[in-house]
């Protein structure tokens, strides 16, 4: 199980760096894939926090690395001209308040890095981490994500 989750996130990350290396992908798809990695990572953490999966330090670390790596690349995927298309849920505010948007994105990466420096050591620790990361997700989605 532990191997599986690590491999899944590793594989998704691998694909991401692969795709960015070739720079063939539309920014809309790239940023959607990055958000998917974050979602997948939160799912791993959530399963441990809820006790659906046993605590697994390596899986927690892999999930946090997934969040950190994705969020560092994420704010660069919003060049002018990508405001629409490919079912993007990006809100126009991203291009109106770019600095704030980037700061919020960076904040999530920084939180993940802080947690990586001292990986939560048990179920309760993962629960607390989930709560902190989740609030940051919502804080940004409140303004910058649009449900169409």
């Amino acid at each position: 199980m532990r191997l599986k989750s690590t491999v899944v996130i590793g594989a998704v990350l691998g694909c991401l760096s692969f795709s960015s290396a070739f720079a063939q992908e539309e920014p809309q798809s790239a940023r959607q894939a990055q958000m998917k990695v974050v979602g997948q990572s939160m799912k791993e953490l959530g399963a441990i926090a809820k006790g659906e999966k046993p605590y697994d330090g390596a899986a927690v670390k892999a999930a946090l690395e997934g969040v950190s790596t994705s969020m560092k690349a994420f704010p660069d995927q919003f060049p002018a001209g990508t405001e629409t298309g490919m079912e993007t849920e990006a809100a126009p505010a991203i291009w109106e308040k770019t600095d704030d948007f980037r700061a919020k994105s960076d904040k999530l990466a920084a939180e993940a890095d802080t947690l990586l420096a001292s990986v939560p050591a048990d179920q309760a620790g993962v629960g607390a981490a989930m709560k902190a990361l989740g609030a940051t997700c919502g804080d940004c989605h409140e303004t910058y994500r649009l449900k169409r």
């Binding site: 799912k43 959530g46 409140e142």
Partner: peptide, 16 residues
């Protein structure tokens, strides 16, 4: 928690 069953997060005015 603000998380959907798929671990998507709450957005828009529902965040508040």
């Amino acid at each position: 928690t603000g998380f959907t069953p798929d671990y998507d997060s709450v957005g828009g005015s529902m965040v508040e």
